[in-house]
Amino acid sequence: MNIGIGLPIGDPPVLLDWAQRADAGPFSTLGLLDRLVYHNPEPLVALAVLAGATSRIRVQTEVLLAPLREPALLAKQAATLDQMTGGRLTLGLGIGGRHDDHLVAGVDMHTRGRRLDEQMAVMRRIWSGKPFSQDAGPIGPAPAHPGGPAILFGGFHPTALERVARWGDGFLAAAPPTWAGDLFDTVRTFWKQYDRRGHPRIVAQVNLALGPQPVIDDARANMHAYYAFTGMADQMVTTMLTTPAQVRETITAFTDLGADEVMFYCYGLDPSQVDRLSEAL
């Protein structure tokens, strides 16, 4: 089982400390959330800085709200980051659920799923090295891997789960083990229906705060503010893991479900949580 760390978003400069601690530890991936109308750092820019400050750990968007972006430029940005990190980029994509994000981007929220499918067709073509159109040539640079960086999709609706098999390499599941198994099974069923080789990569996402009570309180407050728009923030905060025993139990549960990686998302700013998580493992 690979273990990754989802980075807090409240203080971008401190993320260098987080990244370097994680790179020196047993962790596989650094993840970063995406919103537009919020004080979070833009994930591709931030992850580029963190990749330059590390040597081996992967960087991953979880999830980048692709419909808010123009696909040709997004494809170029992703290919650049993938190539310059030696293939360490994983592009986690989703459609988002905030009206204000889509409003300021000038994107119709009701067609964002269809837009993502159209974007994937464009980006896959660009990453293949083919001309963009009859009137425009290829858009480089070439990504580190033929066909583009690894693509994961997040979501819960069957359309989102089917998108994993149509366009992606794997699934990002922001769900507890108690009901993530059904999502995993649905993704695997679509994978077989599309006659895809091998197996979809399954990545679970869990919220975490490790440390003294002020660290936990800080994490809960930050997570509540981030998800306030859902109307379910109170319920979501109660699921946050706060003990090493819960960490180990969760890893075991997702291992039993066949997940490939667990991303522990930290909303508290204290970078010592990296060391505490390492000890908990």
Rank of each mutant, 00 (worst) to 15 (best):
V59C: 11
V49K: 00
R125E: 10
R220I: 05
T250Q: 05
A105G: 07
A121D: 14
R163C: 08
V63Y: 04
A253D: 12
A228L: 11
N222W: 00
G96L: 11
Q119V: 06
D82P: 07
A228D: 14
F190P: 05
M240R: 04
D100L: 10
C266L: 06
G155M: 05
I151Y: 01
A46L: 07
F153R: 03
M263Y: 00
H145G: 01
D117L: 01
R248S: 10
L81F: 09
A51Q: 04
F254K: 08
L208E: 08
F264G: 03
L208I: 05
P138D: 11
I95F: 01
A142Y: 04
G147C: 05
A219G: 14
R201L: 13
P176F: 02
I202A: 09
L183H: 13
E70Y: 11
M236P: 07
L33P: 00
H224N: 11
R125D: 11
S128M: 13
T90V: 15
I3F: 08
R115E: 11
G31R: 04
N40D: 15
L103S: 10
A79Y: 10
R35F: 08
R220F: 01
W167M: 00
Q119T: 05
G97R: 02
E70Q: 15
P141D: 10
P177Q: 08
A204Q: 03
K192E: 15
I57D: 11
M1A: 14
M263P: 00
M223N: 01
T80D: 09
T90W: 01
V49C: 02
H199W: 01
A280R: 13
G140W: 10
E70M: 03
P141T: 11
I57T: 07
Q20R: 15
A209C: 03
R56N: 14
I9M: 06
V237I: 13
G4D: 13
G4A: 10
